[in-house]
Design a protein around this nucleic acid. Sequence first.
RNA 1: CGGAACGUAGCGCAGCCUGGUAGCGCACCACAAUGGGGUUGUGGGGGUCGGAGGUUCGAAUCCUCUCGUUCCGACCA
Length: 573
Amino acid sequence: MRASRFLIATLKETPSDAVAISHQLMLRAGLIRQLASGLYTWLPLGLRVLRKVEKIIREEMDAAGAQEVLMPVVQPAELWEESGRWEQYGPELLRVTDRHNNGFCLGPTHEEVITDLIRGEIKSYKQLPANFYQVQTKFRDEVRPRFGVMRSREFIMKDAYSFHSSQDSLQETYDGMHQAYCNIFDRIGLDYRPVLADTGSIGGDGSHEFHVLASSGEDDIAFSTGSDYAANVELAEALTPTGERPAPSEEKQEVATPDQHSIDEVSAALNLQADQVLKTLIVLGEAKEGETQPLVALVLRGDHELNDIKAEKLPNIAEPLTFAPEDRIKEELGCGIGSLGPIGLNIDVVIDRAATMVADFACGANKDGFHLTGVNWGRDLALSTVADLRNVVIGDPSPCGAGTIEIKRGIEVGHIFQLGTKYSEAMSATILDENGKSKPMTMGCYGIGVTRVVAASIEQNYDDNGIMWPASLAPFQVALVPINLHKSEAVKAKCEELYEQLTAAGIDVLFMDEVKARIGVMLANSELMGIPHNIIVGDRGLDSGSVEYKNRRDGEKQDIAVDGLFEFIQSQV
RNA sequence: CGGAACGUAGCGCAGCCUGGUAGCGCACCACAAUGGGGUUGUGGGGGUCGGAGGUUCGAAUCCUCUCGUUCCGACCA
């Protein structure tokens, strides 16, 4: 590609509303431009990168036996009503109406459409297993789009859906997809980890997320120091602390704590560590027939954080997890939020495992302005329901049994689920089995955020001068930078020759052929755009039969003999 | 959805408090010089100051409403 005929839309200054490094660099290098909140245009340079990601994904999906299809972005409301998600999905689902007043949505995902397709096409267990994928635009009306294409409203996703006549068959394909994802992210050159994950609103059984490790990630990933266990913090189990609870050594006592509401304030006032104070959170429970939702108390150690997902999975707790309004708490429990405690509550109480191991603890007295100290389980109040309610923290024993927990930030770039029969049952996607009996197909689904992968790669590959693309994603492998192109016939001739030669060999070259361009500008642009290999051709070098080569990543320059240059570049890319 | 901030040329910003003919840097166009790492000079083009209403002789500036964008917290590839 000749720079004179290619939109190089680099910016010297960082647009002020970009915060994430990848967002800043994607704007500065001229990969994307924003149209509106969460909506981006991919410029020629960015699209080249995007296409490389897609190509790798297609190759690996094809190799894993999946078939490519392409489903519509606009989907009829009826299908979503059939699966029950028209109600469930919430405002993230952008709903539209056509001229005949029929309801549609912009697809945030395609389970409904693929299930509808396959129930019409596949009738026999003999046609299974089957796995279909697409690379398609999705739309999710995110509450808060941010970080450029990292969390945009419209984005490109590779989604795949597999169909099976048995769980074993699903497991086999699931494992195959797991491997295919590893192959994809390996080829893309990401530092990533597959981690155990929650299945979220899609539901089902097994699930892994693929996370790119980066400090800007939005998820916390728990790792074991003693094994390759890794799980999203929202899922990682917090084990019951080992050992015995110490025996009570203090008497229960009521102390005045005026104006002390938070754990920090209370522990400071009582001169206790936060782990000696228990906090009591009030959430809405599952309503019985015709009644309002009851209140449920959750008790955790003061230094621990409630895990919403674990909590809402409990049978007596409403999903989604909702904190009780303060006026209801005051009215029904008789005190404000800052003075709650588990003693004497006449509602369901669920105690976190770790909280059960604390002796002589402090907690709210259920009386405004008072706390209790020296409280002990068994002696002062009964241990009722115990559950895992909290997020694991650094240093916890790993649930795998070996080592302790370490936490890092991750960007979720892929997610694989075992869906089971959730959609096939709701939508009557059945097959006849070996015995001629009708049964719902077992399904899996597998997603990769294609546009997000581009941003994630930048988060792991940049320096002060710009992007440093891995070879697999670079929009161009080589920048051909002439010096005094307009003056030197020798430079011009050599550049044209090299350009032809490299291009003919299938190497993507950006020939900086603009007559007026200056060396500094060209190199700064090349570095910002992240082109891995730079060839600088000038008279001085040519006089001694060489050109300069500069590697983007290590910044090393070397003079290469013109004669051996083609072979040298071939060996580099 | 709750909290906060910001909308002035393609980008980055000043001007607003204290109302009086809209500015700077980068980018862009022309000419010239320069030419081995974002060069320099001269000259130019481009903005109904997000929008609507109000106050005023006069509004980018003050007031009201509205739209948009971003940031911080609960959801997801």
